[in-house]
Nucleic acid binder design. Sequence first.
DNA 1: AGTCTATTGATAAGGGTTATCATTTACAGA
DNA 2: TCTGTAAATGATAACCCTTATCAATAGACT
Lengths: 150, 150
Amino acid sequence: MEYALRDERALLEKYLRDRGLKMTRARETVLDAFLGLESHVSVEAVIEAARRLDPGVGQATVFRTVKLLVDAGLAREACHDDGSRLFEHAYNHAHHDHLTCTRCGAVVEFIDPDIERSQEAVYRRYGFRSSGHRLELYGVCPDCAAKDAE
Amino acid sequence: MEYALRDERALLEKYLRDRGLKMTRARETVLDAFLGLESHVSVEAVIEAARRLDPGVGQATVFRTVKLLVDAGLAREACHDDGSRLFEHAYNHAHHDHLTCTRCGAVVEFIDPDIERSQEAVYRRYGFRSSGHRLELYGVCPDCAAKDAE
DNA sequence: AGTCTATTGATAAGGGTTATCATTTACAGA
DNA sequence: TCTGTAAATGATAACCCTTATCAATAGACT
Ligand SMILES: [Zn+2]
Ligand SMILES: [Zn+2]
Ligand SMILES: [Zn+2]
Ligand SMILES: [Zn+2]
């Protein structure tokens, strides 16, 4: 965990140095805040976490830094829910799709090789070059279904 | 086509009557405007189309009515793009997924039985009851790829 | 330390959507 | 057809999330 944090910080530093940008205290704070949160967080949540580490961090800075993290490959936009976008860790967190419970909001991350393969076939069928996809399955999780049954 | 319009209007009227709502001129206008547009339209586009039929239609009314159309099963939210949501016809327009060119915005509607089947398997694997999904494939279409090659 | 430029945070502005509310309208019943 | 009542309308303001503006600050290099 400690090592992972260091890895990710080094990645961000390299990304910044490579393009003449600077590693600042605010960016450290936002990175730490983001890494300390679990998957699928809104910028709002990152703002709160960042201000727990350092009150006085501007929200504009958090928006800007999250965008940087995405560009640097440390974060990835997950499933922009209604309204606000959600982000998740991208470093050491391979591609996956989401199965979401529409009742309680529970999210299962899954990867299905058959689906991935079939998607490639669709790209070939229409002559498209692939550049990523988004698959969100919606349903009712076992827990919520059990509550219905009562 | 004429018949289809009548069908859809009858559907909306039934939907409204069943819950004590009223069929109004504004709702007729928005319905006609929406039906006159082709797939994947923003509310903005519906507002423009509606005002071509009847200037003075309030934008709030269009937003409200599009929501009604979705509830009535006449419209369906397609792929909420960056920012604004997009809607498409739902009546006599079976389920399908989207393959979108990230360069020119071209959209191919497709249905892949293998993918649909694999998705059902995912639902079973995690014990979820299915309630719909959203699959968006992104890539570069043949035309844009050809331009790249030049 | 000094210079130069990126970055910051407060604030305003932006775009899409929804809430408010006085007025108008649809529609069931008399 | 007339009326009463509740729903619907449209103008407007409010809302949320996000981005732009900008004077002040703080890295990174010499
Ligand atoms: Zn659930
Ligand atoms: Zn995820
Ligand atoms: Zn294209
Ligand atoms: Zn479509």
